[in-house]
Design a protein around this nucleic acid. Structure first.
Lengths: 251, 251
DNA sequence: GTCCCCGCTATTGTATACATAACGAATACA
DNA sequence: TGTATTCGTTATGTATACAATAGCGGGGAC
């Protein structure tokens, strides 16, 4: 773009395009099943066709896009079951991570950040009812907790796989907990989830691999029940724009 | 390439380049840690730089390549633990698939191909000792069995994830079973693995999810033990060129 | 009136040219 | 003699031009 030399060179065009496109998909401005026009993507992202195409390939591998046999890509649509399976899948992987952490042992220093997360979340949950702002903090802290827990496994292949599984935003159990904020059960669900976190830390400290794994899987099952509840009640779905990717029964 | 118009148009240049590069990596002509030169890849694959770059991005997402911060890609190196973790990871995912299959139920017709696989493998295992050719058939059949089992889960996200986990060739439990062919224990290991297959089918038929899952994880643990044995004995490693990706302790 | 075929257009796949950044070598200075 | 700086070369990142294909619309024929 010689006419627009003030492009941001601090980040590669490919990455810029990838982030921009992902935002568009998750924000719902590109609807599921819709074919993505490269030309249009070039206009909206500001990058040229080559980096846009690289970004499209990455997003396809990430699972947000689907290749069209005749060429090009479309936004992937997900069924409700796809989503609950993704949550359970992630829970299973995180269970394995917790088991690895417990079996391989972690130092007290490594557990420190986890415990800080735990304490911060406890603080937030003391509010009854919890505010939207506190929810936002909660979601961030919860994601951090799960990421730290994953790291404890010290297994690059597993961490990589969990990252992949987390790329689909609705695969994160915490998301649907958040969606429940307006329901009477919401606070209780958050507290149960927090209890799970406490148990998994304890299990890892005591090197009880099986227990650490089991509790993470239970955690995911809670999230699945939660998802069902959220979809049935259509509660705070606007907080989760990624739900735009769910194909309805009529599709 | 105007000078060479007889390029094969039946398959896209991108796919061609991807397959060619993967072959080179797995065959060991590109060594772990080695930077991949795009120009060189252009020459060896016959595609031009754009499809080569797309292929490189795909292979990176696949986990065979690693991006170099300063630019470009290098062949990824794996530790022995990375590999055993990958096997256990895959076993965990296949366990989940088996559980899904059992819980959701599968028809007798769907199980038919699995049972055919089982019978064919039984036939091969009747040879004592088993020939190299029979081993080759065994590996194919075994891969087919695992793929069919995965499909039974009827969960696209899970199937996708298992495919990803299987992209690294050494993540396949069967591979290391094969590597054992020269050891006295080899036949016994194959038979135990086959017994696992039989049990998982039985569990799925009887809709025992927990048992189906447990046996697949046990199956993976067998493969891990197997890997250790194979690496210690350096047995038939030439049958598994992908082992070139393992970084030695001196690296 | 309907169906089929031909041609046009739009979009993707591929190739290549250009810009830029990184790595290395060589020279000069301390 | 060693180190640092600068210049040159090479390879990657980006942009754009070209080619080919698929989809669509119009026109003609049955």
């Amino acid at each position: 773009m010689k006419a627009v030399p003030e492009v941001d060179r601090s980040v590669s065009q490919t990455v810029k395009a990838q982030l921009a496109l992902r935002d568009q998909i998750l924000a719902g401005s590109l609807r599921p099943g819709e074919r993505i026009s490269e030309l249009q993507a070039v206009e909206t992202t500001g990058a040229s066709r080559t980096p846009v195409r690289m970004a499209l390939v990455r997003l396809e591998e990430e699972g947000l896009l689907e290749a069209i046999p005749s060429g090009g890509f479309m936004v992937k649509a997900f069924s409700e079951r796809d989503i609950s399976d993704s949550i359970e899948l992630r829970g299973t992987l995180e269970g394995l991570a917790a088991r690895f952490a417990a079996e391989r042992g972690v130092s007290a220093r490594e557990l420190e950040p986890l415990k800080e997360c735990l304490a911060a979340i406890d603080e937030l949950l003391r509010q009854v009812p919890i505010s939207i702002e506190a929810f936002s903090s909660y979601v961030t802290l919860n994601a951090r907790f799960h990421a730290l827990l994953t790291e404890l496994s010290r297994s690059p292949p597993l961490i990589r796989q969990i990252d992949r599984a987390s790329a689909l935003p609705f695969a994160s159990p915490s998301g649907f907990v958040m969606a429940q904020s307006a329901l009477p059960e919401a606070q209780q669900i958050l507290i149960i989830g927090q209890e799970h976190h406490r148990v998994v830390i304890d299990a890892i400290e005591n090197r009880e691999g099986a227990r650490a794994e089991a509790i993470m899987r239970e955690h995911a099952r809670l999230a699945v029940r939660n998802l069902r509840l959220a979809l049935r009640n259509r509660t705070h779905l606007d907080l989760l724009p990624a739900l735009a990717l769910i194909k309805t029964a009529t599709d």
